[in-house]
Design a protein around this nucleic acid. Structure first.
Length: 368
RNA sequence: UGCCUCGUAGCCAAGCGGUAAGGCACCACACUUUGACUGUGGCAUGCGCUAGUUCGAAUCUAGCCGAGGCAG
C-alpha cells in the first residue's frame, strides 16, 4: 500500500482530497503546515485577529483535526515559520521595495509547499504528496484544473518537473460544486466553509495596514502621465499596482483613473484616464526566472499575466535558460513587473516566470 | 467703491417654478489561495445664508456672506 502525505489546510478542498485518496486505497497521512506567526513576525498593525480568543489559523487547524478524525487518518503538524519568512516573505518585501508587484503564493508553492513540505513528507514515509489544488498531473505534464473557474495551475508554474514528479491533485478532476457536494455527503465540518482568499497563510487583510508593519510608507506625488500635471498625492508606492483604480481618492473626472506606472527614484505614481488608455497597453515583456514544467517549449502558445486573466495568444523567443521574450502584438493591458507570466498550450501548463521588463514597440517603458 | 458673473453631496456637473439627473471618488457585498480588474447595491428631507412672493422655489425678489472678473 502506497503512502500519501496530504497537506491539510482546514478547508474544503484538502478535506475532500483526503477522502478521495482514502477511497482510492492509499495509506493517507494528513500534515498541517504553520507558516506565519503573528507575534514572531511582528504582525500587529491592522491585524483583525489580535483580540480574538482563537485566531483563524488555529481554527483551521482544529477543523483539520476534526476532518481527519472523521476520516480516521492521522494528522501531523509542522512549522515552517522561519522558512516562510526567509524564502517567501523577504522576497515579497524586496520586490515591493523595487516597486514591483510580487505574487508571494507562487513562491510559497515553490519553496514551502512543494519543497520543505515534500522533504518533511518523505521523512514521514511518503511515496506521494497531495494537495487540494485545482490542477492535474497527466503523463508527467501539469494540466489546468477541470473547473476553469477555480483552476490554480497559475500558482504552480514555478514548480520543476522533479517537484511535480510524485504529486497528486485529487480535486483537480472535479468541479468545485461537486467538491462541496462530496463534503456535504460526508458530513465534513468544512463543507460549507467559505473559500479562503488573501495571501497564503496570512489571510484576508487590509493590505496597507499589514504592510505598515514591515515597510515605511513615503508619501509622494500622483501625476497624470498624459498632461504631466500633479493631480494628487499617494501614500507609498508599494500600495499600488499597475491597472489599479481603487484607493487613489481622486474624483472629479468623467472617466476612471488607473495606475499606469511608478518612478521609484522620484517616488512618483503615474495615472491615466480610462480603462482603454494607451499607457496601460503593451505588446511584449521579458520574463525572468523562467521555469519550464516539462520539456515542452512551443514558440506559439497562450499566456496569463495575472491570476484568472483570460488566456492571451503569445509568441515566445528564448533568450537564455532563464529568460524569455513574450510577444503579444494584439496588446494586453496592465502587464505588471513582478507578476507571473504563465504559459499554456491548451490544457497543459508549460511553465512560468516573473515579468521583469515590459515593452512597447521594442522599447522598455520608462514609466514602469 | 461701482458694475457683471457665479455659489447644487468629497470632486466635477444637470436642473432654471412643481416637489434634487449623471459621472468620478468613497463604502458594502459578490467574485478571488497575489494589492488587482470586473460586477451589483448604497451614497444631498436638501441645492451659500436669511427673509419674502407663491398652493408650491434649487429655480423669482431683496439683503447678507463667499469666489472670480471688469471698471479703477
Amino acid at each position: 500500500m502506497k503512502t500519501v502525505v496530504i497537506g491539510m489546510s482546514g478547508g474544503v478542498d484538502s478535506s475532500v482530497a483526503a477522502i478521495l485518496l482514502k477511497e482510492q486505497g492509499y495509506n493517507v497521512i494528513g500534515l498541517f503546515m504553520r507558516n506565519w506567526d503573528t507575534s514572531v513576525n511582528g504582525d500587529y498593525l491592522g491585524n483583525p485577529d489580535l483580540n480574538e480568543s482563537i485566531c483563524p489559523q488555529e481554527q483551521d487547524y482544529n477543523d483539520a483535526i476534526k476532518v481527519c478524525e472523521k476520516l480516521d487518518i492521522p494528522l501531523k503538524r509542522v512549522d515552517f515559520v522561519k522558512e516562510y519568512w526567509d524564502y517567501v516573505f523577504t522576497y515579497f518585501l524586496d520586490e515591493l521595495k523595487r516597486g514591483r508587484t510580487p505574487n508571494p503564493d507562487i513562491m510559497c508553492n515553490k519553496y514551502i509547499k512543494f519543497d520543505m513540505f515534500i522533504k518533511h513528507a518523505v521523512k514521514l514515509g511518503a511515496d506521494y504528496i497531495a494537495t487540494g489544488h485545482y490542477a492535474r498531473m497527466k503523463d508527467g505534464y501539469l494540466l489546468r484544473g477541470v473547473d476553469d473557474n477555480k483552476d490554480q495551475s497559475y500558482f504552480l508554474s514555478q514548480l520543476s518537473k522533479e517537484q511535480l514528479s510524485n504529486v497528486l491533485f485529487p480535486v483537480g478532476d472535479l468541479e468545485k460544486p461537486v467538491v462541496r457536494k462530496i463534503a456535504l455527503e460526508n458530513d465534513l465540518i468544512t463543507a460549507r466553509k467559505k473559500d479562503s482568499t488573501g495571501i497564503c497563510f496570512i489571510g484576508e487583510r487590509n493590505f496597507k495596514h499589514f504592510l505598515e508593519n514591515y515597510l515605511p510608507n513615503t508619501k509622494g506625488d500622483i501625476i497624470n502621465i498624459e498632461t504631466n500635471k500633479l493631480v494628487g498625492s499617494h501614500v507609498g508606492l508599494m500600495y499600488y499596482t499597475i491597472g489599479q483604480r481603487k484607493g487613489l481618492n481622486l474624483g472629479g473626472n468623467l472617466q476612471r483613473l488607473f495606475v499606469v506606472g511608478k518612478d521609484t527614484t522620484k517616488n512618483i505614481l503615474y495615472v491615466a484616464l480610462g480603462d482603454d488608455n494607451e499607457y496601460l497597453y503593451t505588446d511584449s515583456c521579458v520574463v525572468e526566472q523562467m521555469n519550464w514544467n516539462s520539456d515542452l517549449k512551443p514558440l506559439k502558445c497562450t499566456a496569463k499575466f495575472r491570476y484568472r486573466q483570460k488566456d492571451n495568444n503569445v509568441e515566445i523567443e528564448i533568450i537564455d535558460d532563464t529568460h524569455i521574450l513574450v510577444k503579444y502584438p494584439q496588446l494586453v493591458s496592465s502587464v505588471t513587473p513582478g507578476q507571473a507570466c504563465v504559459l499554456y498550450d491548451g490544457e497543459i501548463c508549460l511553465g512560468g516566470g516573473i515579468i521583469s521588463k515590459v515593452l512597447k514597440n521594442n522599447k522598455e517603458l520608462w514609466y514602469l
